[in-house]
Simulated scan of single mutants.
Amino acid sequence: MKKTFTIFAFLLFILCYSQDVKTNRESIKLELIADAENNYSMQVPNSPYFVKEKILQIYPSEKLYIETVIKNDSIYSMEVVNKNVNPKRTIEIEFSQNVTDRTNKQMLLKVTNPFDKKLNYNALMYIVGHDKWIPTSIIPILPNLVNYETWQDTIITLVLENWRFE
């Protein structure tokens, strides 16, 4: 009986204090304004947020909480979670399109750095009208601050990789 109670208490503790991990995004219909006359539309299937270890793919309209594990002064692992319950180790990322009068004003990527060190990563974009990934420059994010990256192109998706501290 004592063993059963101990196991039950342990499982209850894990259930109460564990983070709700989201490995896959739900299927979404992506609608973007390409220009004054044209829209871009696609069905994004149910797919992993991380296409490989620590390589994140994000689409416009997504807001993600990326909980990290830090080991030996570097980012050891990353996973998407439902809520930011560990703000000291959770990167917040939001990707959106700003449109005025059927004109793409800009694509906006907002990244919050919760760490006491400068955060950097590399980015590739896939834009309307092109058939290949294009590298794009990213400004490192100062400790405990938010960074905004903007582009004039209509971006279908971004890949963010090579996360590191400087």
Rank of each mutant, 00 (worst) to 15 (best):
N46F: 06
I70K: 03
K105R: 15
I33G: 05
T23S: 11
V128C: 09
Q97P: 01
I58W: 03
T112I: 10
Q43M: 15
F13N: 02
L142W: 01
T6D: 13
Y49L: 06
T154R: 05
F10S: 13
T154Q: 05
T23H: 12
A123F: 00
K2D: 10
N113C: 07
F165H: 03
V159D: 07
N144K: 15
I75C: 05
A34Q: 11
I28T: 13
D35K: 09
L11W: 08
V159L: 11
M78V: 07
V21Q: 03
F13G: 03
V99A: 04
L109K: 02
I28E: 12
L160Y: 07
V69D: 10
M107T: 06
Y76G: 02
L64V: 10
N72R: 08
F115W: 04
D35F: 08
D153A: 08
I93N: 03
E67C: 12
S47I: 05
V81L: 10
N82L: 09
I28V: 14
L119C: 11
Y59W: 12
N86D: 02
V51W: 09
K88D: 08
K71T: 14
M42Y: 03
M42H: 04
N98T: 08
N144A: 09
D116K: 13
K132R: 12
K118D: 06
N147D: 10
L11D: 02
N162F: 03
I28H: 13
K83Q: 15
E31R: 07
K110L: 15
Y17S: 05
E53T: 14
K105E: 08
K63A: 14
I141W: 01
T154Y: 05
M1E: 06
L12Y: 12
R102H: 10
K71W: 07
L160M: 14
D116I: 11
R89I: 03
F95Q: 04
L124M: 14
T150I: 12
S77P: 07
G129F: 03
V85E: 12
I93H: 00
S61W: 03
A123Y: 00
N113T: 09
V81W: 13
P114G: 04
S137R: 11
D131A: 02
K29P: 00
F115I: 00
Y59A: 04
N72C: 01
E79H: 11
T103Q: 06
K110G: 01
L11A: 09
I127D: 00
V69R: 11
D116G: 13
W133G: 02
P87S: 15
S18L: 01
Y148Q: 08
L64I: 11
S77M: 01
K54D: 13
M1Q: 04
Y65F: 15
R164D: 12
S137V: 06
K52T: 07
D116V: 06
K118Q: 09
N98H: 10
Y65D: 01
L15M: 08
R164K: 13
I91D: 14
N72K: 12
T112C: 03
